[in-house]
Simulated scan of single mutants.
Amino acid sequence: MGCSPSAETPRSGRAGDGGEDGREEDDAVRVSLSAESRRVIRQSWREIQEDVSRVGIIMFVRLFETHPECKDIFFIFKDVDDVEALRTSRELRAHGLRTMSFIEKTVARIDQDERLEQLILELGRKHYRYSASPKYYEYVGTEFIRAIQPVLKERWSPALEEAWKMLFLYITCTMKRGFQQAQREPAHT
Rank of each mutant, 00 (worst) to 15 (best):
residue 134 P to L: 04
residue 66 T to G: 15
residue 64 F to D: 03
residue 22 G to L: 02
residue 25 E to H: 11
residue 70 C to P: 07
residue 78 K to T: 06
residue 37 S to R: 05
residue 29 V to I: 13
residue 125 R to T: 09
residue 137 Y to I: 07
residue 184 R to Y: 12
residue 169 L to I: 10
residue 95 H to C: 03
residue 74 F to K: 03
residue 65 E to Q: 15
residue 129 R to K: 15
residue 80 V to L: 09
residue 104 E to M: 06
residue 112 Q to F: 00
residue 116 L to S: 06
residue 14 R to Q: 09
residue 128 Y to C: 11
residue 28 A to H: 09
residue 129 R to Q: 14
residue 155 R to Q: 14
residue 22 G to C: 04
residue 2 G to M: 12
residue 56 G to H: 07
residue 141 G to P: 12
residue 170 Y to A: 03
residue 65 E to D: 15
residue 52 V to Q: 12
residue 177 R to H: 13
residue 23 R to M: 06
residue 148 I to F: 11
residue 156 W to E: 02
residue 109 R to T: 07
residue 99 T to Y: 14
residue 125 R to N: 10
residue 145 I to E: 01
residue 4 S to C: 07
residue 98 R to N: 15
residue 19 G to T: 10
residue 158 P to D: 08
residue 7 A to N: 14
residue 1 M to R: 07
residue 176 K to G: 12
residue 91 E to H: 10
residue 167 L to D: 05
residue 78 K to Y: 05
residue 59 M to D: 07
residue 29 V to E: 12
residue 55 V to N: 10
residue 124 G to H: 11
residue 167 L to Y: 04
residue 2 G to D: 11
residue 153 K to N: 15
residue 3 C to N: 05
residue 4 S to G: 05
residue 122 E to C: 04
residue 128 Y to T: 03
residue 105 K to P: 00
residue 35 A to C: 03
residue 5 P to R: 00
residue 53 S to Q: 14
residue 58 I to D: 11
residue 79 D to E: 12
residue 143 E to N: 15
residue 36 E to D: 13
residue 144 F to N: 09
residue 22 G to F: 01
residue 58 I to E: 13
residue 118 Q to G: 10
residue 137 Y to V: 09
residue 98 R to V: 08
residue 168 F to E: 03
residue 37 S to I: 00
residue 125 R to V: 07
residue 38 R to H: 00
residue 148 I to T: 09
residue 160 L to I: 03
residue 40 V to S: 02
residue 13 G to W: 04
residue 34 S to K: 02
residue 13 G to S: 14
residue 58 I to H: 10
residue 115 R to L: 13
residue 73 I to D: 02
